[in-house]
């Protein structure tokens, strides 16, 4: 007979609790799971609700104030005047420039990111897969400012890019590009081309991650099935892979678009003197002290992103996040 045999001598079926404060608290938690859930949620919800959502409302509120042109003081009366100022030609300019840049950066990021994501999802295995993953994660997480700084070094007149082009005897090509209107300028570091390059560099990794996730979910046999049905690789790519990867592309574009639209540091350090939304917000709240206009400006990316997210959700992009 085993020592583990049933104890028929009357071992209690219900044991005494551990007792003490901890025992009582534990019993309370078990008896009131909803209350416990509520207690767990209270600190994070209070923090985010009061500090973050509260601040957003404070910002929104300020966008309905206006600034007194003579005294420079904020007039705390409800008005839509500040929003009207958004439609001044110079401000419309800023919005259009920013949205256009964000769109171009997104498209370019998608093009550069796709081969990496596709290779990592479909061909890389084992050690290589891990290497690809870290190869994307390390630049993604490494310091934003250092990355911008690196490009300041690269694009400088005496920097590596010009040196490299000179070695290849291609300086004329760069000069020809810089002579073009709009995209050109005195040098790359003070042109839209420079701003664009740095934006793509900094935000592109955010495109790779969801794109790869979406591509991983395309079953391999689907591609084989397509090939089996007589589709050329190009057709398979266009009709099977691309549509299935699209939610990932859209998910990634949320990041590249949103991050580009809100950035005020990159265009300040590398680019022309013309403002982007982020710079306008920064300038209005800072030196100009026109918080209402700055607040109204921030509503623009919120609204644009709202539409963008709504569109992305309809395309099923959130499953790829």
């Amino acid at each position: 007979m085993s020592a583990l045999a049933a104890d028929r001598t009357g071992a209690p079926a219900i044991l005494a609790g551990r007792g003490g404060v901890f025992g009582a608290m534990s019993d309370w938690v078990w008896r009131h799971p909803r209350m416990f859930l509520f207690l767990m949620l209270t600190p994070p919800v209070l923090w985010l609700g009061i500090i973050y959502i509260g601040s957003l409302f404070a910002l929104l509120l300020q966008s309905f104030f206006s600034i007194d042109e003579f005294s420079g003081l904020i007039n705390r009366e409800f008005t839509l005047k500040t929003y009207g100022e958004l439609f001044l030609p110079q401000n419309v300019d800023i919005v259009v420039r920013t949205v256009l840049m964000a769109a171009l950066v997104t498209i370019a990021s998608a093009i550069v990111a796709f081969p990496i994501a596709y290779y990592a999802a479909r061909y890389a295995k084992g050690k290589w897969k891990a290497a690809f993953y870290l190869g994307v994660m390390l630049p993604l997480w490494s310091s934003y400012l250092v990355k911008v700084y690196a490009w300041k070094l690269i694009l400088a007149k005496e920097g590596i890019l010009n040196w490299f082009l000179a070695k290849l005897h291609l300086t004329w090509l760069l000069d020809a590009w810089l002579a073009l209107p709009i995209v050109g300028g005195n040098s790359l570091s003070v042109s839209y081309t420079g701003t664009f390059l740095v934006f793509v560099y900094v935000w592109m990794p955010f495109m790779i991650v969801p794109m790869q996730a979406a591509l991983e979910r395309v079953p391999g046999n689907l591609i084989e099935a397509s090939a089996d049905l007589g589709a050329a690789p190009r057709q398979t790519f266009r009709n099977v892979i691309l549509p299935l990867a699209m939610p990932g592309v859209i998910a990634g574009s949320i990041f590249t678009f949103s991050l580009t639209m809100g950035d005020y540091i990159i265009p300040q350090i590398i680019g022309t003197s013309r403002l982007f939304i982020g710079q306008a917000v920064y300038a209005h709240q800072g030196t100009a002290g026109n918080i209402p206009l700055a607040a109204a400006f921030t509503v623009v990316p919120i609204v644009v992103m709202g539409f963008y997210l709504w569109f992305a959700k309809r395309q099923g992009a959130f499953d790829a996040l």
Partner: peptide, 23 residues
């Protein structure tokens, strides 16, 4: 609510906090 501070551009979080502090 948790994801929002990262989904909206940082400048919005920044200026929202600043304006809340000043208010």
């Amino acid at each position: 609510l948790v994801i929002l501070p990262i989904a909206l551009p940082g400048i919005i979080t920044g200026i929202a906090l600043r304006s809340a502090f000043s208010l």
